[in-house]
Simulated scan of single mutants.
Amino acid sequence: MKKYYFDIRDGSQFIRDDEGLELPNIESARQEATTALSEMAREWGRGRPQHHMAVEVRDDHGPILDASFSFLMKPRTT
């Protein structure tokens, strides 16, 4: 199995993953990034009118996948 690292960007904050996860393939890493991103959106997005967050996946050779989510909440004008 190969080790994948999941670095987090939450707005301007960057959290480097130094532990990583051993997964069988890139598809498993993609699923892990998708799950992490949806959990981030659920937990960290509350009460923020505009935000961008991302999971940057890398292996021992460098970056291999970026998953990001942006949202904007604003009142509608009539």
Rank of each mutant, 00 (worst) to 15 (best):
M1T: 08
K2V: 01
K2A: 10
K3F: 00
Y4P: 02
Y5C: 10
Y5V: 02
F6H: 03
F6D: 04
D7P: 01
D7I: 02
D7K: 01
D7W: 01
I8T: 00
R9E: 06
R9P: 08
R9T: 04
D10C: 09
D10Q: 03
G11I: 01
G11F: 08
G11C: 08
S12E: 09
S12P: 01
S12T: 10
S12Y: 06
Q13M: 12
Q13C: 07
F14Q: 06
I15D: 09
R16D: 14
D17R: 11
G20F: 04
L21Y: 03
L23A: 02
L23K: 01
L23H: 07
P24A: 12
N25C: 11
N25P: 00
N25E: 11
I26A: 10
E27D: 15
S28G: 06
A29P: 04
R30S: 05
R30H: 07
Q31R: 12
Q31P: 05
E32Q: 15
E32V: 02
E32L: 06
E32R: 15
A33Q: 06
A33N: 08
A33K: 07
T34F: 09
T35M: 14
T35V: 14
T35E: 13
T35L: 15
A36Y: 04
A36F: 04
A36C: 00
S38L: 11
S38N: 12
E39N: 11
M40W: 06
M40N: 08
M40E: 07
A41R: 05
A41Q: 08
A41K: 00
A41M: 07
R42A: 14
E43N: 11
E43A: 12
E43K: 13
E43W: 07
W44E: 10
W44F: 15
G45A: 05
G45N: 03
G45Q: 00
R46A: 02
G47K: 04
G47W: 05
G47L: 07
R48A: 13
R48C: 11
R48Y: 06
P49C: 07
Q50V: 10
H51P: 01
H51K: 05
M53F: 04
M53P: 03
A54W: 02
A54H: 03
V55P: 03
E56N: 12
E56G: 00
V57F: 06
R58Y: 03
R58D: 01
D59C: 08
H61S: 14
G62K: 06
G62T: 08
G62I: 09
P63V: 15
I64Q: 01
I64V: 14
I64D: 00
L65M: 02
L65D: 03
L65W: 04
D66P: 05
D66Y: 11
D66M: 02
D66W: 09
A67K: 08
S68V: 08
S68L: 02
S68Y: 14
S70D: 11
S70A: 13
S70K: 02
S70H: 04
F71K: 06
F71Y: 15
L72W: 13
L72D: 15
M73Q: 12
M73L: 15
M73Y: 09
K74Q: 14
K74R: 15
P75A: 05
P75I: 07
P75V: 00
R76E: 15
R76Y: 13
R76N: 14
T77V: 14
T77S: 12
T77A: 11
T78Q: 08
T78I: 00
T78W: 05
